[in-house]
Design a protein around this nucleic acid. Structure first.
Lengths: 217, 217
DNA sequence: TCCTGACTCTTACAACGTAAGAGTCGATCC
DNA sequence: GGATCGACTCTTACGTTGTAAGAGTCAGGA
């Protein structure tokens, strides 16, 4: 009797990237708690221990997922001005985050040192230096933009503290105590108008404009 | 023979906040992986199952830790202008995050719906509305500031992607491939000058200035 | 004195990460 | 051909995890 009869869910042979991509798919489908070595193996038609030939341990799966996610970042068009490059970078980050929200929330606190993900960073820094910023200032501008984009995407994916948009149409606003928070609660209807896309744009434009004035001449 | 002889590490009776505070202390001391119900119980001189009388499950411990952390946020001085209130809010968030870095990294992706943590939010929104912003615009400005501060604090606590400051004095910059990243690598020495405090300030000032121009008149 | 409720303990179980080592099989040599 | 080998997978096993179930402890009120 053959031992492993169910490899239907995988076409090629097992590999590091196949494992990581399956992990991302699993987390997106069943949530962060579903990511166990056994279930991940089952997802690939394989026992848990087989995964250890492609990945040293579970923690490396998480790091690999982050790397795999962020390697989707597209570098900005060559020769773009720094404002465009910065806007591009922030938007790319948000796109990647919202395209795999569970994975992003699960791995957002890992520093990302993969070569592939550094290309867009290098491009942005290059654009800043080209525009006359000192390398130190360029790094500050990059950090500001990356922090904003990561923070916004994380809030969006995890649920805003003050949320106008939610599955049940209520969000955190519905439960607000009117006495304790008169302004928030009294303006519920108007607060509901905020759309996450527009809010992201407003903050991004403001940040870039502010950096223009302060940092790069 | 008495059963539990070691309650030395706790003075009062067990309580929800005692459990949560012990969890924060444990995570800060021994890292996120050390947070198991058994070890948390031991920390309080109690068996694991006793904790379940104060907390429904492990996940609630994490939520409670986040709540406990963020309830440290101090609201801005009464009647402060919105710029000052915004700056205050962002700085408070960073202070809280860096004062308990492990806990912050562990819980940063949880939406925070606790009453206590909403007070500074309400104060900031109030200041914005007082300055003439519509509630929807005020919420956008709040989100921009909170996203920036959370994102920056998270990067700072988890390690910047392009890091100038690190324990061994090298950080990610030392390992950079000179060929692939000429600008980053070629300016290593200048990039090292960036201090996290100053970078945070620069981004914050830029964001507030930008919001001033775009949003609130 | 007995009850009651809040708290804690003990015991138990299924699921977890992973160490150790044995089985399988295609490719490469003689 | 057969032998060897390396890459891969499986089985088995161990200690640890979260937590369900229920019994023990004990202060305060009847």
């Amino acid at each position: 009797m053959p031992v492993a009869e169910d490899r239907s869910r995988r076409d090629g042979p097992l590999s590091r990237t196949a494992v990581l991509d399956a992990a991302i798919a699993l987390v997106e489908r069943d949530g962060a708690n579903a990511l166990t070595m056994r279930r991940l193996g089952a997802e690939l038609g394989v026992e848990a221990m087989s995964l250890y030939h492609h990945v040293p341990n579970r923690d490396a799966v998480l790091s690999g997922m982050a790397e795999r996610l962020m390697s989707q970042l597209q570098p900005p068009p060559k020769g773009a001005g720094w404002q465009d490059a910065g806007e591009w970078f922030a938007r790319q980050l948000r796109i990647v985050a919202t395209s795999s929200p569970q994975t992003f929330a699960l791995t957002a606190m890992r520093p990302l040192l993969e070569t592939r993900a550094l290309e867009p960073v290098e491009a942005l820094l290059a654009a800043l230096v080209r525009a006359g910023a000192s390398p130190a200032d360029a790094l500050m501008a990059y950090r500001a933009l990356a922090s904003y984009a990561r923070g916004y995407a994380l809030a969006e994916v995890a649920g805003f503290t003050v949320d106008a948009t939610s599955a049940d149409g209520e969000g955190a606003l519905g439960a607000l105590d009117t006495d304790a928070f008169p302004i928030l609660a009294g303006r519920r209807d108007e607060l509901r108008d905020v759309r996450a896309d527009r809010a992201f744009d407003v903050g991004l434009e403001a940040l870039i404009a502010g950096l223009s004035a302060t940092l790069v001449r």
